[in-house]
C-alpha cells in the first residue's frame, strides 16, 4: 500500500513537472529576455501552422535545437499564416517552418516564385526586417489542385489548364484563406483563367478536403503534394504547367534576434538532410500510422545523426 502511494506521489509530481515544462498557460508569452540572445543559453519559441506536416517540421527543428543545448518551447497548431505571421513579427514565436513560395506570395501577391532560386530570393527580399530565412531544404511540399480518378477520366484532365472549360461546373475546396489568397482562388483565375462554380472552405488539405472530394461535395480540392491520402484514394494531382504553385522549399524562418551561430548551424544541418521523399515518408508515419509527430521527429533526427 505504502509503495503504491509512493508511486502515485511520484507520478503526480512528474505530471506537475511536465506541466511546468510545457509552459504555464498563464505565464506571459512575451519574448524571452534579451539577455538570452548572447552566450550559449539561447531560448526560443518554435511555432507551427495547423497541419500535421508543419507540426512535424516544427518538432524536427525543436529536436535539433534541443540537441544543441538550446532551450526550446513549442507553440504548435497556430491556424494559418494570417494568424501566425503577426505572432512571428511581434515576437510571440521566434521560429517557424515555412515554404519559400507560399510565404513570398503571402507577403506580396506579385512575388515571382517560378523556380527554387527566385522563390528564395523573393522571400529574402520581402521578409520584414526582424525576420530571416535560413538555408532552405531540398524538400518541397506544394499546394495542388487534385481531383478524383473518376473526375479526371470524365473530363479528361491531366493538367490544371484542362480545367478551364469545365471549372464552371465544379466546386473547388480548400482552406478558408484560399478565398482571398494570391495562391488561391484569385490567383487561379488570374493565371489559369479558372472560374469555379463555387468555393467551399474545407480545411488545410486535411480530412475534410479528402472526404469532400470522395463525397462529391467538391470536385477539385487543394491537397499537399506530400499527402499520403492522394495515393491511398487514387486521386489525380493535376500538373501545374504554369508553375502557379511555384517552388515551395521547406525553409526555417527565424527572428533575427534569436539567430545565433549555433542555432543557424543546427537548422541548416536539418535543411541539408531533408528532401521531398524523406518528408513524405515522415508525414505518412504521422498521418497514416498515427505515430506522434514528436517521436517521428526525434527518431529521424537520431537516424541522421542530428540528435
Amino acid at each position: 500500500m505504502k509503495k503504491h502511494l509512493a508511486i502515485l506521489v511520484a507520478a503526480t509530481a512528474s505530471l506537475a513537472l511536465t506541466a511546468c515544462g510545457s509552459g504555464d498557460p498563464l505565464a506571459s508569452s512575451a519574448p524571452a529576455s534579451s539577455a538570452a540572445s548572447s552566450g550559449s543559453t539561447v531560448s526560443l519559441v518554435v511555432g507551427s501552422a495547423n497541419f500535421p506536416e508543419n507540426e512535424l517540421l516544427a518538432d524536427i527543428y525543436a529536436g535539433a535545437l534541443t540537441a544543441k543545448g538550446v532551450q526550446v518551447t513549442t507553440k504548435l497548431n497556430i491556424a494559418s499564416r494570417e494568424t501566425y505571421v503577426p505572432a512571428l513579427k511581434n515576437g510571440e514565436i521566434d521560429l517557424i517552418p515555412e515554404y519559400t513560395g507560399g510565404f513570398s506570395k503571402y507577403l506580396n501577391a506579385d512575388a515571382d516564385i517560378s523556380d527554387e532560386a527566385t522563390a528564395l530570393a523573393s522571400l529574402k527580399s520581402l521578409l520584414p526586417d526582424n525576420l530571416e530565412a535560413l538555408e532552405p531544404s531540398k524538400a518541397q511540399d506544394k499546394d495542388s489542385i487534385t481531383v478524383t480518378r473518376a473526375t479526371a477520366d470524365k473530363y479528361n484532365l491531366t493538367t490544371i489548364d484542362d480545367l478551364a472549360p469545365v471549372a464552371g461546373e465544379m466546386v473547388l475546396g480548400g482552406p478558408p484563406e484560399w478565398k482571398n489568397r494570391a495562391l488561391g482562388v484569385p490567383g487561379l483565375k488570374k493565371v489559369y483563367g479558372l472560374v469555379f462554380k463555387d468555393f467551399r472552405a474545407t480545411d488545410a488539405a486535411g480530412p475534410l478536403t479528402v472526404q469532400a472530394l470522395k463525397n462529391g461535395q467538391i470536385q477539385a480540392g487543394n491537397l499537399f503534394t506530400t499527402d499520403p491520402s492522394i495515393k491511398a484514394n487514387d486521386f489525380v494531382t493535376l500538373e501545374d504547367t504554369k508553375s502557379f504553385f511555384g517552388a515551395q522549399n521547406v525553409v526555417p524562418v527565424i527572428n533575427k534576434a534569436k539567430a545565433t551561430p549555433e542555432v543557424v548551424a543546427a537548422l541548416n544541418a536539418v535543411s541539408a538532410k531533408l528532401d521531398t521523399d524523406t518528408l513524405a515518408t515522415l508525414v505518412t508515419k504521422v498521418v497514416v500510422d498515427k505515430d506522434d509527430a514528436a517521436t517521428v521527429a526525434s527518431d529521424w533526427l537520431t537516424s541522421v545523426g542530428l540528435a
Binding site: 491556424a79 494559418s80 482552406p175 478558408p176 467551399r200 472552405a201 480545411d203
Partner: peptide, 20 residues
Amino acid sequence: AASVSLGGLGRFLIDGQAYR
C-alpha cells in the same frame, strides 16, 4: 458547424480568423 466546412454565421468567424 463552419469549422467542418458548413455554412451559417460561423463562416464569418472561421473565414475572418483565416484571413485575419
